[in-house]
Design a protein around this nucleic acid. Structure first.
Lengths: 343, 343
DNA sequence: CCTTCGAACTAAACCGGTATAGCTTGTGCC
DNA sequence: GGCACAAGCTATACCGGTTTAGTTCGAAGG
């Protein structure tokens, strides 16, 4: 005999009280005597009662879930090492709190906006994470319209009143450039990310700054879409130049690995003839040859903190922005002294 | 003035009918005259009515969401190229159908089972995808207990009555071995995956078969957990042997890339002195040097088909298993003729 | 002693749908 | 003409919680 889940009415009947009182007792509301409260909790425990999510959702308009909308074309997504790790961090917090993560992967901007509309309209989530911030990001206005709480990953335009969780990645880029300068490099190129994405633009900006600080020319920059193939293309263009760079700073690891492949294909020895740095500290970057010097962040921790921040925002209506420890340079084998014969 | 969402009662009032009739009309149930149905649909459209998910969930015990539980430690997850692509495929189907994907990433078996229990108990999802099938997988029994529909990815034990969506990966492994044999290799090693995972075990089994068919010794096998670091370790052990292999077949791309790194670090030329094949056809595998010969599957399509299958199972109570086109060998630059001096 | 007030509790409305029982009609048939 | 029956529709219970408006009762205050 399959016994169905006990409801709050079952608990009330067994405890000999009204179901309203059971609700009060279980939600720690005043108006219940200590003894009665204790008895109700005992009965609920004995019966193995668990509140029905859908009933609660209906009466409180709360879904007990958070949303993450990822805008990536299907071809590119598996190359991006960030999201799986970030999600793992988010999950580690959500499962403890009995909340779920609703994921949405969309190919373009239109579908992205539609996705936020649906999530909000269906009351599917109580709040969302905003990734891949763009300059002049239309999502902030939409979310404000929809009344959907959000936490931004990265530093949003200060004008918007959205809490954020940030990692100072400019520091890592500066460190990478300083490291290369110290090794004697002067022609340092940058394979930048998408300039419309704030982290892409900011990494590029800090590359410019660091180069200027070192008194070097920062004009060797190619913008990409962060994909491995665009990283390979950019590398080929740099190496085809009359005066090719002796070091290349990549805005992420997959592009750096692709660039390493291009260099090796041309018979260039890394790091003797070309130094390379990546960005993200992905697992695989430590196992290519030569092991990639890269800038490490901690996306799992980022996910944890973002989840806690969003939960607080949803619960209290406000949350402080958090600044995580800056990304820092992990020196491995893909960087070395500038070649003397052409420095 | 913020106007709240119209409810079915608003539609009924405006159309001058009872709300029950509106429900019939909107769900294509009989008992509504064509004119009335038309009028109701018009009114609903004019008012911009959208059914409330939570109300529907409560009265039908349906959540309009599917679940995916991924069991991976946080350190490993970003190395796995399969899930992001698979999820992108799933999403492409779900968004069209107005369903959502609830994701759960858990570190261990205990948390995994708990996660299924919670998803089912909270009625958070209508069905789940089962990945990383294991031999003697306890999840089948749990899901049967919970009454949660499931679609398996890969070939489950025939005893369980769960529809599955499979890719014949044995074919790809056989092709890889045949390709290497044709190139003159005789000492071919295999860096296998986790034997407790069915795809890990099956890939190994088909390696054994293919080697036996070629009349070769298939004893050079090391089992791993699919991580890049374990792939590097296994490679070192093979290369340290008195009679090292001249070709290594890896059970996934990250391990193959790590193995390539190890070989290069030792000054071994690939493919002149060592041939290498991967598995998955990840984006990055085409950009390392030399470009990886690998066995390609199509995880995006896999996700699409799995989503459609699970939706059908949930809707009708039954669904046919699907066999996708077999994984096939993509020959690139990391395989070549066996070295003559030590073949 | 009677009123007042608050603590503890009950009853019932409510969230927004779905599903079922029952009520009106109009039509076909004998 | 009367009856059975089906189509079309209404009223209402129901899903399982939360929340508000009362109700009861004992203690404190005048």
């Amino acid at each position: 005999m399959a016994q169905r889940k006990p409801t709050i009415t079952d608990v009330a009947r067994t405890a000999g009280v009204s179901k309203g009182l059971v609700s009060f007792a279980l939600n720690d509301k005043p108006g219940v005597s200590p003894e009665t409260r204790k008895r109700i909790l005992e009965v609920a425990g004995d019966l193995g009662w668990r509140p029905s999510l859908s009933a609660r959702s209906l009466s409180t308009s709360t879904s007990f879930a958070l949303g993450l909308v990822i805008r990536r074309k299907a071809e590119v997504i598996s190359a991006d090492p960030f999201f799986p790790a970030f999600i793992a961090g988010v999950e580690s917090v959500l499962t403890e709190e009995g909340r779920a993560l609703v994921l949405s992967v969309v190919p373009d901007a239109e579908a992205e906006l539609r996705s936020y509309r649906t999530l909000a309209g269906d009351n599917r989530v109580d709040g969302v994470f905003l990734t891949d911030l763009r300059t002049d990001d239309e999502r902030f206005e939409l979310l404000a319209d929809l009344g959907l709480p959000a936490v931004a990953l990265g530093r949003p335009n200060p004008a918007v009143a959205v809490p954020s969780v940030q990692v100072d990645d400019t520091h890592g880029i500066a460190e990478a450039v300083a490291h290369l300068v110290e090794l004697g490099h002067t022609r340092i190129a940058h394979v930048a990310g998408d300039p419309h994405m704030m982290h892409g633009g900011r990494r590029r900006g800090s590359f410019d700054d660091a180069m200027r600080d070192a008194g070097l020319d920062s004009s060797l920059v190619i913008e990409t879409d962060f994909s491995a193939s665009s990283g390979a293309d950019a590398t080929r263009r740099f190496l085809d130049a009359a005066q090719p760079p002796t070091a290349i700073v990549y805005a992420n690891d997959p592009m750096a690995i692709a660039g390493l492949g291009v260099a090796q294909q041309r018979g260039l020895r890394v790091p003797e003839e070309l130094s390379i740095t990546g960005f993200d500290g992905t697992d695989i970057s430590g196992y290519v040859f030569p092991a990639l010097t890269t800038i490490t962040s901690d996306p799992v921790e980022w996910g944890r903190v973002a989840a806690r921040t969003l939960l607080e925002l949803v619960a209290t209506g406000a949350a402080d922005s958090v600044e995580l420890p800056p990304a820092s340079l992990l020196i491995r084998a893909s960087t070395g002294p500038a070649p003397s014969d052409r420095g």
